[in-house]
Structure formats: structure tokens, C-alpha cells
Design a protein around this nucleic acid. Structure first.
Lengths: 159, 159
DNA sequence: GTTAGTCAATTCAAAAATTGAAGTGATGCC
DNA sequence: GGCATCACTTCAATTTTTGAATTGACTAAC
């Protein structure tokens, strides 16, 4: 199987990974959240090649994660902005950031998140909305739907 | 700049992305959370090639995300398990899952998360630990540290 | 005691993706 | 006119990934 078959999987993690699970795509999305909107800025702030940036922006637009918006008619210019679907990736980026802050950084975080509502510098946490408690790997149990379970058992036995 | 330069960036998101921001790595980590531990099972359940799986497992081990543990001496066999650093990626995987469930799936989620503490099927949320409220992109403001800010401004102006 | 099967890989060639440098075209500014 | 900006595109060289085949250490079955 190649990466291009991932979007057709049952697993929504696999599908999500197929849309945004690559290095440069995640960095483009990071930049979007830091209010970068123009081609040249993405280029310099991520350090990627213009060819690949162009491909990735097209892919992200086709997937509905970003949209191009004109900001000048003459010369024709436009900028890229996140759609709601794209903005909803905030949680993913923040999860990566918390993990990076914890495990990959000697110093303090280079990027603080301020909660506008309460004014605090915050480290967002995953919590269970039912009981309000923080939730981590060992507090959770995965339960597979029947079709997903069967699909996985078939894969295990099959050649 | 190539992907191999990402680990040396100041940004902890870039560093995190350098460690786990690729398709197959994320799927391997997903499998780990579904209690897959053996080479052959990763192979069949992710659909990746054995060559790449071997490379990725080595990389993950070198990064301290997983460790090899013998489970049989004769024949010599071992399995792969997440370290604490690896388990801490749970939030990232769950963030991807929630996003995938919301935007990429017509049906119900193929994978439910049960909160062992309270017994509920739960959709974990990012919340602000200070005020306890859910937090999303529009509730948050990014604040860059001085060195990070300067680094970015230099990139913007420089060729 | 040969044969088949399992597990955890490694090897290798072909195909695909990425990088890096250079070029394009529309326009504005001096 | 000449240079600069922005948003790309083109293309060759390099790197990665794929997919198939093979290896080697063993076990279990005939």
C-alpha cells in the first residue's frame, strides 16, 4: 500500500494523516495560526522549496483547509487563509507543541498561548467533557466499531 | 532547507514535526495505542512496506519514543512498546482522530474512546487548565518569545 | 529429517517525491 | 529603462519510498 491509499481507509486517524500528516503541511498550518498569509512569507518562514509549497497549497485548497483570497487587483495578488476546517486543526498543532515543549526543548517554550477569555498564559489540556478531568493515554480505552474490528482481524490473518 | 534541518529549529512545533510528522510514523503510533506490538502486525495493519517499517522503528527507537523488549529467547523475539515519551503522543493522535471524525467521516466514528475513570464514551476536548473552559483557535493568542520573534523577522526580510 | 511456516528483518531495482537553482510574467517605483 | 516584488513554474539532481524477493533463526508437522 502506498500513502495515496490512506484516504480510503475506514480509520479516521488514517484519513486525517493522509490530509495533514506530513512535515511541510504541518508547518504551513503552524504558520497559518501565526497569521502568515503570503506565499513568500511561507517560503521564508518554513524554509521549504517554492515548488513544494506550491503543491502543498494547492492540495490544502483542494481539501478545503485553506482558501485563496485576493487582496489586490492590480497587480493581481492574493493571500491564503484557513477555512473553518483548517482552523479546527488548532488542537492538533497545540498537541504537537505541548509535546515538543515537554520532550524536545531544554529551555522555556518559544511560543506561549494566551487564553483570551481568561487572560492567562495557558497550557491547554485534553479533558473529558463528561467528568471534566484531564485525560491521558492510561485513562482511556479504545473501543473499535464492529466493521473496523473485523477489518483489522482480517488484516492480521491475511498474507 | 530540507526536512533534516527541522530538528535544529527553535520552534518546538517544528521539532515535534521532525520527530513524528510523517504519514507512516503517525500510523505506527496509532497502532501502538491499539496495542499492536509486533513487526508483522504493524506491517499488515498499516499496509506499509517492511523496509520502511524497519527504518521507522529504528528512528523511533533512537528518538526514545519506543523500546524493543524481548518476549522470547528461543527463538529470539521481541516486541515494540511505547516509552513515556511515546505514550505522551496520545493527545496528538486523539486530536487527529477528533478532527478526522468531524471532517472526514460520513458515518459514526470507527473508534470510540472510553474514559476509564468515569466510564463514559468521551470526545476529549482541549481546555484551559486555568479557567476550565474549552479552548479553540479563536480563543487563543500566540505570544512569541523575543528570540523566536527576532528569528522570524530576520527570515521575513532576508532573501 | 525434510518440508513448511513464523517472525523479523535486509537487499535491491524501479518509481515517486523532494530539493535547489533558475526562469517567467505581471506590475510598481524611481 | 532598469530594478524590485510577488507568486509562482520549470527542470535536473538527489533522496525517499515502494514492492518484490530473499535471508536466517528457529518451531512444528509429516
Amino acid at each position: 500500500m502506498s500513502r495515496s491509499d490512506l484516504p480510503s481507509q475506514t480509520c479516521t486517524i488514517a484519513r486525517a494523516v493522509a490530509q495533514v500528516g506530513d512535515e511541510w503541511t504541518l508547518l504551513i498550518v503552524r504558520e497559518m495560526f501565526l497569521r502568515t498569509r503570503r506565499f513568500d512569507d511561507f517560503l521564508r518562514l518554513t524554509g521549504m522549496s517554492s515548488h513544494l509549497l506550491s503543491l502543498r497549497l494547492k492540495k490544502l485548497e483542494a481539501q478545503g483547509l485553506i482558501r485563496r483570497e485576493p487582496y489586490s487587483e492590480r497587480p493581481p495578488r492574493h493571500e491564503y487563509r484557513l477555512t473553518e476546517k483548517g482552523r479546527d486543526l488548532w488542537t492538533v498543532i497545540i498537541a504537537l507543541k505541548q509535546w515538543g515543549d515537554r520532550w524536545l526543548s531544554a529551555e522555556d517554550t518559544p511560543l506561549q498561548i494566551v487564553h483570551k477569555t481568561c487572560g492567562q498564559v495557558t497550557k491547554p489540556q485534553m479533558t473529558c467533557p463528561d467528568c471534566g478531568e484531564p485525560i491521558e493515554a492510561h485513562d482511556a480505552e479504545a473501543r473499535l466499531s464492529q466493521p473496523f474490528e473485523l477489518e483489522r482481524q482480517a488484516a492480521r490473518r491475511a498474507p
